[in-house]
């Protein structure tokens, strides 16, 4: 009986320690994350106008997409296109990097989907976001 009790306690202890681990913060302060972050920060100055005009929208999978190029003068469409591609490359690298920095490369997809929800939730009113496969304005 005593053995059983000890076993149970050990189990509970294990549970508690695992809980603590889950509550811990995710490591996001690596040189890689910082490099990607500052590149995205610099790009945001150019992108924010396109979010506001609806030319670019936030997708459900944590990326951005050229939603309505006709909101942009013809001559600027190519550069918006390139901005979107560069931003998506950085976003992909960011999700992979966070997963790697936390020694769980397999978390990448979940990190991406968490980010996907958060980007959309934190988007400013007037920006276009993807929901249920369609575009809607916040």
């Amino acid at each position: 009986m005593k053995k059983l009790l000890r076993y149970t306690t050990a189990m509970l202890t294990l549970t508690v320690s695992l809980n603590v681990m889950a509550a811990a913060d995710l490591e996001v302060n690596t040189p890689g994350v910082n490099a990607i972050k500052s590149s995205m920060q610099a790009r945001h100055a150019q992108l924010s106008a396109y979010y506001a005009s609806g030319a670019v929208g936030l997708t459900a999978d944590g990326m951005i997409a050229l939603r309505d190029a006709s909101a942009v003068p013809m001559a600027a469409r190519q550069s918006v296109n390139a901005l979107v591609a560069a931003e998506n490359q950085d976003r992909g690298a960011l999700y992979a990097e966070i997963a790697n920095a936390n020694a769980h490369p397999e978390w990448q997809a979940e990190i991406r989907s968490t980010f996907g929800q958060r980007w959309i939730q934190r988007a400013q009113p007037g920006w276009w976001v993807q929901s249920n496969g369609g575009w809607m304005q916040k």
């Binding site: 050229l66 939603r67 309505d68 190029a69 006709s70 909101a71 013809m74 469409r77």
Partner: peptide, 11 residues
């Protein structure tokens, strides 16, 4: 001309 998303367009 232009398609709906403006990715193929001319003025």
């Amino acid at each position: 001309f232009s398609n709906a998303d403006g990715l193929h367009a001319a003025e």
